[in-house]
């Protein structure tokens, strides 16, 4: 028995949609309920969550310095001293 309504592939797709924020609130709640009641589904859910945080945490994110942001705002002020409208 794999949850109440769906087969494994459908659940996998639901889990992907859950983390893509592509489910309705009702569908989210139903999925979480099914996940909480089924250790196999729970494993798939946790794995998907972990993989996504792994990728997010590992990806390079070069930081922007406050000086660089100031240079942008300064350039806008110089280009548009009295506004552009």
């Amino acid at each position: 028995m794999m949850g109440k309504h769906l087969d494994v592939q459908q659940y996998k797709q639901q889990i992907v949609d859950f983390f893509d924020n592509n489910l309705t609130e009702k569908a989210k709640a139903d999925l979480l309920q099914d996940v909480s009641e089924n250790s196999f589904l729970s494993g798939i859910f946790e794995n998907e969550k972990n993989v996504r945080s792994f990728i997010k945490s590992q990806v390079k994110r070069p930081k922007i310095s406050p000086a660089f942001l100031k240079s942008i705002t300064d350039k806008i002020k110089i280009d548009n001293p009295h506004g552009i409208y």
């Binding site: 990806v59 070069p62 930081k63 942001l69």
Partner: peptide
């Protein structure tokens, strides 16, 4: 102009790091 400057500072600039990550990739 101050109205637009406020939008720029409050709504646009906070996304600088996210934009930079996208730009880098």
């Amino acid at each position: 102009k101050n109205y637009y400057d406020r939008i720029f500072m409050e709504e646009f600039l906070p996304h600088a790091d996210a934009l930079n990550t996208f730009a880098y990739h």
